[in-house]
Computed example of a mutant assay.
Amino acid sequence: MSLQKPMMRGLLAKRLRFHLPIAFGLSFLAAIAFKYTVTEPRKQAYADFYKQYDAVKEFNAMREAGVFESVRPSGE
């Protein structure tokens, strides 16, 4: 009883035909999962924040707190 000779010619091509579609499929699923679990909620959070964000009010609050060196508080 002898062992079967290993297949040496075309081994890479044969393995790629099997593994490459699996790799592409899994990477596509990972990208879709990332899009809907990370980026979509993040975009919605930014949209919700900027719906009620008032930049002038925020600037005046920072100016009153003395954050800026070149802008005087309105009381001076």
Rank of each mutant, 00 (worst) to 15 (best):
A30M: 02
E40G: 00
F59E: 05
L20P: 02
L11Q: 08
S27Q: 10
N60Y: 10
A45D: 04
L29F: 05
M62S: 12
A65S: 15
Y50E: 08
Y53C: 13
R72M: 12
K57N: 07
K43L: 10
H19T: 14
L16M: 15
R17N: 09
F59W: 09
P6H: 02
F34T: 12
P41L: 04
P21S: 06
Y53R: 12
K43G: 03
I32F: 05
A23N: 02
K51S: 06
F24H: 01
G66Q: 13
E58T: 14
V71W: 15
V67M: 07
R15S: 02
R15C: 02
Y53W: 15
A45Y: 03
L11T: 10
A65M: 10
E76L: 10
F18A: 14
S74Q: 12
L12N: 05
R72F: 07
S70H: 10
K57D: 10
A65Y: 07
L20A: 09
F59Y: 14
E64A: 11
A33Q: 02
A23P: 00
I32L: 07
T39P: 04
V71F: 15
F49S: 11
R42F: 11
A47E: 08
V56M: 11
S70G: 10
M7K: 15
F68Q: 09
V71T: 14
A31R: 01
R63A: 09
G75C: 07
K57V: 04
F59K: 06
Q52D: 09
I22T: 11
A45M: 04
F24D: 00
Q4N: 11
L16D: 09
K5I: 04
V71Q: 14
V67K: 09
T39K: 01
P41K: 02
V56S: 09
L3N: 14
S27V: 06
A23F: 11
F28N: 03
V38L: 11
L11W: 01
F18C: 09
F34Y: 15
M62I: 00
R9S: 09
G10A: 03
M8L: 14
P6C: 03
L29C: 03
F24M: 10
E76P: 05
K14V: 04
I22F: 03
Y53S: 12
M7E: 15
L26Y: 01
F68Y: 15
V38C: 06
M1N: 14
